[in-house]
Each structure stands twice: as structure tokens, then as C-alpha cells.
């Protein structure tokens, strides 16, 4: 029973990591950018939810505004910071992403101070326990797992079954050829950012419902761990991000449950080092031969 409970913990944590890792992987897949501001978009989402619920809005509406807010801010970042650098070396893009991340953290610190704020998690998902046989689950655990799996299925359908999904895959495969075939690259990239950050918005709500505290730097560690998950799964690969997210979630829970809690973060980043040394393309990533 204890084992089963811990598995569910892993599932909950893993599904949040997977949602965030998907955003990383989608953006990398399409413009080869490690969007280090992705974690901070989640933080922005947390503050939007805090403000909207604080203003007395209905929680469902607040969640909607949070997701929309995450999408808008990401699309804006892409337009202002990344698009002008489309043809610049990739290292410039990477440095810009780090700059955007710092900008967002410091802006929020300026307006809301560095203090942790209570997140109104119980207004969104009430603190309620569900008894399942001998298993006690909180409502937030169940909602997190169901919503994440739902979002991942939705994304899969979108990418595999729609014209836009096809266009995204084409741009990811070969940007130049896709452009020659008449695909509007800018639009596809914008939509990819939008979808990635909508997932981040959902992740933000679920993450905060579990941890119920918002602060300006909350996105950095979450973002880094999701990045490790994306690399483990094979960055750029959608199923890889999901597999990586769950693997990292389970690894964390396993290490902690065995009593090595001080080593949890170390294990996650050791995974990154091992993957980069042994199989840099990740579990499900495809190796791309360097054109010389």
C-alpha cells in the first residue's frame, strides 16, 4: 500500500514535470532554442492566478485567465526577444533566453517583493481526501494526474491529426523546405510557443495547487528539472518529454522515499550528466548527423 501511495506521488510529480518538459521540447524542436524563460512563465502564471483570485474572480475564470496570460506573455517574448535573432547564432538566442528569464524574475520581484506568497490553492481545488480502498488520495492529486494526461493526449492528437500539427512537424523537420512548401514559418512558431506555454499555464496551476506558495524564483528549479526531463527523453521529441517527465518524477520520489532526501536534486542533475555522456540524444531522441 505504501508502495502504491509512493507510485501515485511519482505520477503526480511526473505529470507536472512532463507538462513543463513538453513546452521545452516543442520550442527546441521547432527553433532549436533552449527556452530558459519557460520556468519563469510558470511563475508569471502563479502570480496571475494569485491576482485574479485575490480580486474575487471565479476560480474557473481565474484558471482560464492564467493560461491565457501565460500564452500571451510567451508569444510576446517570442516576438520581441527571439524573432529578431532568428538568423543569429544559436548561442545568442540561448543567452537572450537567460536574459529574459532574469528580466521576468526581477520584474516580479520589483512589483511583488521577494517574499513568498500564499497561493489560493484550496479555492481552485478544495482540500478533500478521496478514499480508494485503503488508499487515501487528495482531490488535487487525482485532478493533477487526470488533467495532465488529458492535456498530453490532446497535444498528441493536435500534432498527429491536424493540418497545423503537420505544419509544425514539417518546420521541425526542415525549416527551409517547409517555407518553400508555402508554410508560414512565423505563424507556426508563434503557435508552437502558444501551445507550449498553454501547457505551462496548466502546469503552473497544478504545481501551485500542490505547493501553494508563489515566489519570484519558483520557476528556476522547476524549469531546470523539466529541462533535465526533456533531455532525458530526447529534447525535441514529444513522447520523449512525457517519458522523461515521469522518469524524473519517479526518480525523485524513489530517492526521497528511501530516505536520501538531501540527494534528490543531486540525483536529478546526475541524470543530466549521465545522459549527456552516454546518450546525448536521450531515450527517444533521433540523432541528427551534423552537416559538414
Amino acid at each position: 500500500m505504501l508502495f502504491l501511495s509512493q507510485c501515485i506521488n511519482g505520477l503526480q510529480l511526473g505529470s507536472i514535470y512532463a507538462l513543463v518538459a513538453l513546452g521545452y521540447s516543442m520550442v527546441y524542436g521547432i527553433i532549436r532554442l533552449l527556452n530558459f524563460a519557460h520556468g519563469d512563465v510558470i511563475m508569471i502564471g502563479a502570480y496571475i492566478a494569485l491576482l485574479t483570485i485575490g480580486a474575487g474572480l471565479h476560480p474557473a475564470l481565474a484558471v482560464g485567465i492564467t493560461i491565457l496570460g501565460c500564452v500571451l506573455i510567451s508569444v510576446l517574448i517570442e516576438k520581441v526577444a527571439y524573432r529578431p535573432l532568428r538568423s543569429a547564432p544559436r548561442i545568442s538566442l540561448l543567452i537572450t533566453a537567460i536574459g529574459v528569464s532574469l528580466l521576468l524574475q526581477n520584474l516580479v520581484q520589483l512589483f511583488f517583493t521577494a517574499d513568498s506568497r500564499a497561493y489560493p490553492s484550496t479555492a481552485i481545488i478544495p482540500a478533500r481526501a478521496i478514499q480508494l480502498g485503503g488508499l487515501s488520495l487528495s482531490l488535487s492529486t487525482v485532478v493533477t494526474i487526470l488533467v495532465s494526461v488529458g492535456a498530453m493526449l490532446g497535444l498528441h492528437l493536435l500534432i498527429q491529426k491536424t493540418r497545423m500539427g503537420k505544419a509544425m512537424r514539417a518546420v521541425s523537420e526542415d525549416t527551409g523546405a517547409a517555407q518553400l512548401m508555402g508554410i508560414d514559418i512565423n505563424r507556426v512558431i508563434s503557435i508552437t510557443f502558444a501551445i507550449g506555454s498553454a501547457l505551462a499555464g496548466v502546469g503552473s496551476v497544478l504545481y501551485c495547487c500542490r505547493y501553494s506558495v508563489a515566489n519570484p524564483t519558483m520557476g528556476s528549479l522547476l524549469g531546470l528539472k523539466a529541462f533535465v526531463a526533456a533531455v532525458l527523453g530526447g529534447i525535441g521529441s514529444i513522447p520523449g518529454a512525457v517519458v522523461g517527465g515521469f522518469a524524473i518524477g519517479f526518480a525523485e520520489v524513489l530517492v526521497t522515499a528511501l530516505g536520501f532526501s538531501a540527494w534528490t536534486d543531486a540525483v536529478v542533475f546526475a541524470v543530466l550528466i549521465v545522459v549527456l555522456l552516454v546518450k546525448p540524444t536521450g531515450l527517444l531522441g533521433r540523432g541528427v548527423a551534423e552537416k559538414v
Partner: peptide
Amino acid sequence: VDFQSQLTNIAA
């Protein structure tokens, strides 16, 4: 920020 695994052990 995550204490779920420890608390699951404790709750058991």
C-alpha cells in the same frame, strides 16, 4: 518544496 514522499512514509 516537495515533502510528499516523506509524508507518505510517515502517514503509513
